[in-house]
Design a protein around this nucleic acid. Structure first.
Length: 815
RNA sequence: GCGGAUGUGGUGAAAUGGUAGACACGCAUGCCUUAGGAGCAUGUGCCGCAAGGCGUGGGGGUUCGACUCCCUUCAUCCGCACCA
């Protein structure tokens, strides 16, 4: 290498460079964001804030470094960018550390936060730490409590005794969203059903609005997952009179058109009619119900399990044709969905079909594919068709029949059109310590009294005993437990704490005015910054955090806090970075970036993570290629330190340089805007390679050379903030590279005067030649005629067709 | 079972229906050395000495031309899962 020309340049030592600039950025506070800047638009770039588990692992780097590059890029585009960071600091690990190692959860959490903040800075991220928030501070969770009370007063928070999911390992209840495949999303333990009084948020009130995601620029996958989770289905409820009783059984169906085909009813084992009508006096029924209670939820909801049931002593009357039909109890019917009872239409529902076969029940065809009345069915026929065996409706197509039969039963007052949703209300209470205390009192009659606003926050007391007992540890704290209320006297406090998803449902709002003491946020500022322009984080939050946050936004809007409908306008999901084919996590599979940072520097680690592949793909971690980006940064270092000397100025070379510069910028701007960091870096590498090639020739003017370096460094700066800043300074700039604007490109400087003509024979490449643009076809043909390469493919053959795409290719079709 | 995504060299990966494999890793050969991040040069999809042929999971199709569009099938991953 040309070291002699590269006089007095220091070798690239990432650790020195990175430390130097991290200190300067901190001192000069260059990432501090004003609420507004004259002539700049605001851009709110937000990463899902982390749980303070102690150390940032490679998975964190993969989530946060590219997100930071996005924020930095938006600054270069001229936006006033807010890129805040905080800590989702309530939650079980702190408590478990307390139990296992006898460490105070608060201390554990804050030590971790301190450590992680330091590590974030070592990553070189451009966070405005003046906006930092920590959800376990009373300043923050006071507002959880305030919102909770307002929701209670508006009937959006309520307490109800009912069946709940219980995690036997973490010893707490869970929300539906936190149960995956019958297991706790957090602990992995198989959950069980318990009856307990718990607090809920009425997310079901917003089910319909939450379905509307038309204006969200989110990955379709996430939208689909939310839609599936909300699970809207339109149909009708139909009341079946019980024979010899005044009671009715309501069933929900989406196939009201099959009403004439009902040959039995099935009730969930928990259906209230069972107790009411004392059906358990029949021993078979009694035993069946007992058995179904013994089954775990996983078994009970397994789709491969055989459908079982037991016949009861009662019959119902089908309101449309007055037929008498038997009533069964079957544990494949879920009490929690619809009405907890289904009408059995074996001819047109596969589950009912199997059930009917097993119990020898009548299978009556009412929707016919071809209008014929008697078809031997081997399976349920679930497609559309013509009604048969359906009285006055015979001959009608079933879509039409749906409407007509629904109208008929509404008119006869034996049922109505209904919409059912899969989503359940959000169970918010947890029987654990490290969370926001639910701000409610109970009087001696167990009547609920919300904590008065003047007594907020209800501060989480320091306790000594955290062992999970199934009851909140707060129950053990007498001082906490009782409160002498000036008006109501001695009251007992609610001791459950809130689900930590409460904290993350509105933290993005708090970032806009984190210092507010008298309100959760400054309304003008929050409306000014919101919604978040670009939200970035993992897809694992699709139906938890992301759904809750949308719900919460709508609640706060309806309570008058906000004037917009959605919290996160754009969402990008990074892929999952695996290590040894397993998800990286502090608990199970840590992967420490520190040795890499030490050896190669944070810039190389950042660039490597972004170069690996598309950000939304993820993949299995391997550091085998990190040397490549490291070498690249060295080449850039050498380039910028190179003492450039003009020698034989050459117009063509200048033109080339300008063209390549413009192409590079065009690619970079496009790819950065689409989170395609890998191809951005590839373009910058090509640019670097080109500059390396021409640097000794001295054929371009010094000012063109310097311009090219500046362009390179600005483009590099979002990805590798430290080395670009250092070299920017070495080029003699006093202002930070991170306060610059993106270079521009001009389309007509990109255009070449020549092009490579692709010559194909029968669609296969056989020759190519450099041509001036817009060369006329005669000239091209004369080339074709004398081309040696083509001869053997066309001589003696008939050219039956020529496809000519100007300035691109010619394809000769020969026979 | 349903829904979605993905499938390209030894590896990570690129490619508005128009040169498949950009950019890197790795490897090979050579040069140079102030042993550093070494650097530089050349080569590197597969088969073949070559000419040439074959190549984007498999099979069909549309097209002058398909990684790209359509059908079908397989594999992997991710969601959901008795939703009535």
């Amino acid at each position: 290498m040309l070291k002699e020309e590269n006089s007095n340049s220091e070798p690239y030592k990432p650790s020195d460079v990175e430390k130097k600039w991290q200190d300067i950025w901190k001192k000069e506070d260059i990432y501090k964001t004003s609420d507004s800047v004259e002539s700049k638009k605001n851009w709110y770039a937000l990463s899902m804030f982390p749980y303070p588990s102690g150390d940032l692992h490679i998975g964190h780097w993969f989530a946060f470094a590219p997100a930071d590059a996005h924020a930095r890029f938006k600054r270069l585009e001229g936006y006033n960018v807010m890129h805040p960071q905080g800590f989702d600091a309530f939650g079980l690990p702190a408590e478990n550390a307390a139990i296992k190692r006898n460490i105070n959860p608060k201390k554990w959490t804050f030590d971790n936060i301190q450590n992680m903040q330091k590590q974030f800075d070592m990553m070189g991220n451009s966070y405005d730490w003046s906006r930092k928030l920590v959800t376990c501070t009373p300043d923050y969770y006071k507002w959880n409590q305030k919102f909770f009370i307002e929701m209670y007063k508006n009937k959006l928070a309520y307490r109800k005794n009912g069946p709940v999911w219980w995690d036997p390992v973490d010893q707490t209840t869970l929300a539906n969203e936190q149960v995956v495949d019958g297991k706790s999303e957090r602990s992995g333990a198989e959950v069980i059903k318990k009856m307990m009084p718990q607090w809920y948020f009425k997310i079901t009130d917003y089910a319909e609005e939450l379905l509307n995601m038309d204006d969200l620029e989110w990955p379709e996958k996430i939208k689909q997952m939310q839609k599936n989770w909300i699970g809207k289905s339109e149909g009708g409820t139909i009341d079946f009179q019980i024979e010899g009783s005044s009671e009715k059984i309501s069933t929900f169906t989406t196939r009201i058109d099959t009403l004439f085909g009902v040959t039995f009813l099935v009730l969930a084992p928990e259906h209230p009619a069972i107790k009411k009508l004392n059906l358990e006096k029949n021993d078979d029924v009694k035993n069946y119900i007992l058995n179904s209670q013994k089954l775990s939820e996983i078994d009970r909801t397994s789709t491969v399990r055989e459908k079982t049931g037991v016949k009861t002593d009662i019959y119902c009357i089908n309101p449309i044709n007055q037929e008498k039909i038997p009533v069964f109890i079957g544990d494949y019917v879920l009490a929690s969905y619809g009405t907890g009872a289904v009408m059995g239409v074996p001819a047109h529902d596969q589950r009912d079909f199997i059930f009917a076969k097993k119990y020898n029940l009548q299978i009556r065809l009412v929707i016919s594919p071809d209008g014929s009345h008697n078809i031997e069915l081997n399976n349920a026929y679930t497609d559309n068709g013509t009604l048969v065996n359906s009285g006055d409706f015979d001959g009608m197509n079933n879509t039409e029949a749906k409407i007509n039969i629904a109208n008929l039963i509404e008119n006869k007052n034996v049922g109505k059109k209904t919409i059912t949703y899969h989503i359940r209300d959000w169970l918010i209470s947890r029987q654990r310590y490290w969370g926001t205390p639910i701000p409610m009192f109970y009087d001696e009659n167990d009547e609920i009294i919300p904590v008065d606003e003047e007594f907020l926050p209800v501060v989480l007391p320091d306790v000594k005993e955290f062992m999970p007992t199934g009851q909140s540890p707060l129950t053990l704290d007498e001082n906490f437990l009782y409160f002498d209320h000036p008006k109501f006297g001695r009251l007992r406090r609610e001791t459950d704490t809130m689900d930590t998803f409460m904290d993350s449902s509105w933290y993005h709002l708090r970032f806009t005015s984190p210092g507010e003491l008298d309100s959760p946020f400054d309304r003008q500022k929050v409306n000014n910054w919101s919604p978040v322009d670009q939200y970035m984080g993992g897809a694992e939050h699709a139906v938890m955090h992301l759904l809750y946050a949308r719900f919460f936004n709508k609640v706060l809007r309806d309570l008058g806090y906000l004037n917009f409908d959605e919290p996160y306008k754009r969402l990008f999901n990074q892929g999952v970075m695996l290590a040894r084919h397993m998800k990286i996590s502090k608990r199970n599979n840590p992967l420490n970036p520190e040795p890499l940072v030490k050896q190669y520097g944070a810039d190389s680690v950042r660039a490597y993570l972004m170069f690996l592949g598309p950000w939304d793909r993820g993949g299995d971690w391997s550091d085998s290629g990190i040397n490549g980006v490291y070498r690249w940064l060295h080449r850039i270092w050498d380039l910028a330190n190179f003492k450039y000397k003009e020698k034989d100025l050459d117009k063509e070379e200048s033109k080339n340089l300008i063209q390549i510069s413009n192409i590079t910028t065009k690619n970079v701007l496009h790819d950065m805007n689409n989170f395609k960091y890998n191809t951005t870096i590839a373009s910058l590498m090509e640019y670097t390679n080109f500059l390396s090639k021409i640097r000794s020739n001295g054929r371009v003017s010094k000012s063109d050379w310097i311009d090219a370096l500046k362009r390179l460094l600005i483009h590099l700066s979002p990805i590798c903030p430290h080395i670009s800043e250092e070299l920017w300074e070495k080029l003699g700039h006093k202002n930070s590279v991170h306060l610059q604007q993106n270079p521009t490109y001009t389309e007509n400087l990109i255009e070449k005067s020549s092009f490579t003509l692709i010559i194909q024979v029968n669609g296969k490449l056989r020759d190519q030649v450099e041509m001036q643009k817009n060369t006329n076809i005669e000239e091209i043909k004369s080339y074709l005629n004398q081309s040696e390469k083509l001869k053997k493919y066309i001589s003696g053959k008939e050219i039956i067709k020529e496809i000519y795409i100007e300035n691109k290719l010619i394809n000769l079709v020969v026979r």
